[in-house]
Design a protein around this nucleic acid. Structure first.
Lengths: 246, 246
DNA sequence: CGTTATCTTGACTGCTGTCAAGTTATGTGG
DNA sequence: CCACATAACTTGACAGCAGTCAAGATAACG
């Protein structure tokens, strides 16, 4: 239906969609959606699922990129560091995001899981070849990267122009809207990041993050249980605190 | 001579590269480089060069995107605003950057020329059609957007974690390395941005920018003439002041 | 030459960072 | 299950960097 052009090899391989993929696709609608059944079979032969504990460095700054991956569950932090150790998280990736930087051999950032995370690893060579074969796939990657660019620019406004209070509220709202791929705005969720991570994401210190969380709690904009679990009964107030209003 | 529209139009299937394009390509190696001669002729029929004075709003937040453009000369600011007027510049585009946001009808940011700027306007419809015809073009657009993503993330580190001094030095270094497409590191250049623009780019106030510029001048890391012209004889010291060192 | 925009400088305030102590969670070995 | 150690978080006191307000200087412009 999408196109007949990229019907490639009709060979010994059976062209049914691998069971693993169809289960994944049903839930995640990720990058693989544009592939033909044949291509999925081919990719599935080389891909593998992996589960990482929270706090695992998946790719380090300067390391060789040998694979792309689909995030099936969990959260990954992308960060950059200055030589003196100051750190900034420049992106958070949630399921069902695709991770990887095409056309570049070496990572310019560090990728680290924030919580237990499951991914589907796709060998670089295979994907790169498929990109050449099917323009639809390149388009999908392009769109994923454009989404990341939009998100990065949104966050630049937060980093450069918002107060500590607005930054923390913005972060909470971001998590509420991204933590569950099936829910638009979760009113109750576990924070995938420690206070230190949140500080690195917002360009603040741990102490300031903590103080602002306490303030938001005292004003009953949020409730906090066990440090990590947040409930927000009135999203409108959270958005206002975040400076998201028109 | 500037206006290329009246260049002889031959048959669409004549495969001579339009004179205007080959002159442009020689200097800028932009997006059009992947097009066939036929495609260039086609595109050239509909494209037009335009010159904007500095401070012209090219596209407003929320406006319909009717065209892409190649920057031939000048600088364009991309910015976002909060409802109360706080503003953040989220990207600077120099020649020979390609400007445009594929797959989206409406601009999420404002584009404004910082100085007198000349662009080659490419109608959206034509380019979108060509993208479907030639995967090479999509790839080129993808790569341009990836470059912008890398730049946005670099700048997030600056916004979130650098001091005012480092921010200003980082900005000066950015201009030194981008203002002239033919020079890697210019030691002498005119600032394309006012102090107010610089403040909006760095997430600072005008006064702080001014004070830090004065300090860098007093330390002889830079010289300033007429407020706008900067000379830096020792780039290494500027990089150090910018926190760019490994 | 006068008007206006842009930029610089100073005095002061306040937000966020720093340093330090204390509290609450999490995990481990006995 | 408890005692202990460690990590994560909160809170307080204080300091300093950058913001605010204000005035004056310089450049741009008609």
């Amino acid at each position: 239906m999408i196109n007949g052009l990229s019907v490639v090899r009709k060979d010994i391989h059976n062209s049914e969609v691998p069971a693993l993929c169809s289960a994944c696709e049903a839930r995640h609608r990720g990058i693989c959606g544009t592939l033909t059944a044949d291509q999925l079979v081919e990719l599935n032969k080389h891909s593998k699922r992996r589960k990482f504990a929270g706090g695992t460095e998946v790719i380090g700054q300067g390391e060789t990129l040998s694979a792309y991956s689909n995030i099936l569950r969990g959260v990954v932090k992308l960060s950059k560091m200055l030589s003196d150790g100051r750190q900034q998280i420049v992106g958070l990736q949630f399921a069902p995001d695709f991770m990887g930087r095409p056309y570049v051999e070496e990572s310019q950032l560090t990728a680290e899981t924030a919580v237990e995370t499951e991914v589907c690893l796709l060998p670089r060579q295979i994907v790169d070849r498929m990109v050449n074969e099917s323009p639809e796939l390149e388009r999908k990657l392009h769109q994923q990267n454009l989404k990341e660019l939009d998100e990065a620019r949104d966050w630049m406004l937060t980093l450069g122009r918002k107060t500590a209070r607005e930054k923390v509220a913005s972060f909470l709202y971001l998590i509420a809207t991204h933590i569950d791929p099936e829910v638009e705005e979760a009113t109750s969720f576990d924070l995938p990041l420690t206070r230190a991570d949140i500080a690195d994401f917002l360009g603040l210190t741990i102490e300031t993050v903590s103080r602002q969380m306490t303030k938001l709690r005292r004003e009953s904009i949020i409730q906090i249980e066990n440090n990590r679990h947040v409930t927000c009964s009135n999203m409108e107030r959270l958005r206002t605190a975040a400076g998201i209003d028109e």
